[in-house]
Design a protein around this nucleic acid. Structure first.
Lengths: 113, 113
DNA sequence: TGCAAATACATTGGTTTCTTATGTATCTTT
DNA sequence: AAAGATACATAAGAAACCAATGTATTTGCA
């Protein structure tokens, strides 16, 4: 089952920042594949959503880029700036608290699985 | 701390449907207050978001309405239709699974608090 | 008693964020 | 040689929400 896209709204930046915090540097396509893999295909990032988001995060000063060539094909690696590292933690914390609040609101049990 | 509005995006319908499932019938203003109360002020629904959503859910056939007068002031009560009851459960289940997925993705521990 | 705040509905204009579609190009597998 | 995967990017439009505004009644308090 793929999650309805409205649920994912607002979480994309958080996901990207967290993945970069864990992996040091990643390129766009890699991010889409990693998310697919980690979520068992339930979240599929589209390129039309991801690339503008990466550009926006770079504009905000949270990401730095580094271009590498694999043969003739270009790869644009993204890494967290110092500000980005801080923001990544803040975003994850905020989301975590949001989950707790939503659990209360929706009366969800905590499943240890 | 008030959650950044982008997080709440996509959850509004789920919240509304669940509250109505729990409480039978509620009116708009009551919903905003109940959410404020249940979330310790961390989620504050704006009227500009809530009313269009209620109207949309009604158009979708998930809600039925019933107008009552308190003195001269009107109150519009919303209740779940049979379809709405089913949808409410589906939405809550979907969100619950979404939480699990996000927990994996963001590496969040399960806190029993 | 008069005024502010709370209650209660609603709409409009604008922004953000995502989707769908399209475009370019290279590399791999069959 | 063609299809599919890899890899970037943008543009047009839709969806969902926010901020602001509007109307009107009721309550609390000074």
């Amino acid at each position: 089952m793929i999650f309805s896209s409205e649920l994912i709204k607002g979480t994309l930046k958080t996901i990207v920042l967290k993945l970069l915090a864990d992996n040091g540097k990643m390129y766009g396509y890699e991010i889409t594949q990693r998310v697919k893999e980690l979520t068992a295909d339930r979240i599929q990032l589209t390129e039309g959503a991801l690339y503008p988001t990466l550009h926006a995060l770079e504009q905000e000063g949270l990401l730095t880029t580094q271009v590498e060539y694999m043969g003739k094909r270009v790869r644009k690696y993204y890494s967290l700036s110092p500000t980005g590292k801080t923001r990544s933690q803040e975003k994850v914390t905020e989301f975590s608290e949001f989950l707790g609040t939503m659990r209360i609101l929706l009366g969800l049990d905590i499943k240890t699985a």
